[in-house]
Write a protein that binds this DNA or RNA. Structure first.
Lengths: 195, 195
DNA sequence: AGAGTATCTGAACAAGCGTTCAATACAAGG
DNA sequence: CCTTGTATTGAACGCTTGTTCAGATACTCT
């Protein structure tokens, strides 16, 4: 027997990626087997190879599309007028976007080491690309006298680390709403680079 | 044949832990085999079980002794007089200690999921213990009017995430010295919770 | 109705996994 | 020199791994 009723490529493909994302984030790339992913989708392991050439590429595609979407979504937002307004927008955007995709964020920061050199370089470049958008805001604000960061590059990395950390503890329905978390972090970021 | 010349338990044990720490941090817990660890030490896989009951316990022992040492080292420092001085000491201590143990720090934040529930709870409790030391500083400073953090708990997590992030990019012999990094981060932290 | 194609199964492959254990080699003490 | 105990080997255990592929099924188009 083969081919279940009503099964289609356009359905199975996304389901495989979704299952892989969740399982990789929860258990780690190396700890998850192709058979586990297949079972989650309700399919045999062999069928996965209709959708990915191998396991590493499956991970890479997840990371790459996450980074692409992160950058594209930010770039699609209308830029605010002043550097402080742009910084506030960045803080709120980064927290909100990452909270919606906690699994992908965790993967992006933890499983890069399972990529081959070429794939690793691709994801690293995208990450730098994104960080540079924050770097540019800080640079512009410095030039305009809005900010005083002793080192723009370090401030970029420090702020991103701080914001990304939200995904490790935030729980929906907890003590604080997303907006409130955004308010508090914006207050800290604003002051940390204040002139 | 068995037992190489001059090999002793007091030497092999630490070497196993050191090799496991490096390999786990570099490749991930699940991706590293007992045979790889043994090979790194120059021993057969079976010999590892003279020093650990199983693979998970090996990981747990690494994480536990790291957390114990982190807390003990901080507690052994003479407490500074005022909350701002204590905060500065914490910032510089956390960066310095973690830079010396980048592998262990990475493990502590990434491989908790490979622990069973009991071991997981133990490490989590130690982490909270450590975070509470920063929380107490912020609380005291708030009461004394030195700081204005909108939410002490969030400020704690934000600052720790920011400081721990240093280990992901700092390279010895790079553009900035450790002290300079400490200066810059202290400046940002100080302002972020300023009254 | 029949042909063709896309989708999936189920078994197989060699390799590697964590772990156990009898046999063995060495070091130390008497 | 001989015994005792510790440290280690090397083979073996049953199981799982990523990946391949011939064959079977269901859908689509003519």
């Amino acid at each position: 027997m083969a081919r279940k009723t009503g099964s289609h490529s356009e359905i199975t493909g996304p389901r495989i990626r979704a299952a892989a994302l969740t399982l990789f984030a929860r258990n780690g790339f190396a700890a998850v087997s192709m058979r586990q992913i297949a079972a989650e989708v309700g399919v045999q392991a062999g069928a996965l190879y209709l959708y990915t050439p191998d396991k590493e590429t499956l991970l890479f595609d997840l990371l790459k599309s996450h980074m692409d979407e992160l950058i594209a979504t930010w770039d699609a937002l209308p830029p605010a007028a002043t550097p402080p307004a742009r910084l506030e927008a960045f803080v709120r955007f980064h927290i909100g976007f990452n909270l919606d995709r906690a699994d992908a964020v965790f993967l992006s920061y933890m499983e890069l080491r399972n990529l081959g050199p070429a794939n690793f370089a691709t994801i690293e470049a995208l990450r730098r690309d994104y960080e540079n958008r924050l770097g540019a805001i800080l640079h512009d604000g410095q030039a305009a006298g809005d900010f005083t960061a002793p080192d723009a590059k370090l401030a970029t990395l420090a702020i991103i680390a701080m914001l990304t950390g939200v995904t490790t503890w935030y729980r929906e329905g907890g003590r604080l709403s997303r907006d409130r978390v955004g308010d508090i972090y914006w207050d800290m970021v604003r002051k940390s680079v204040a002139a």
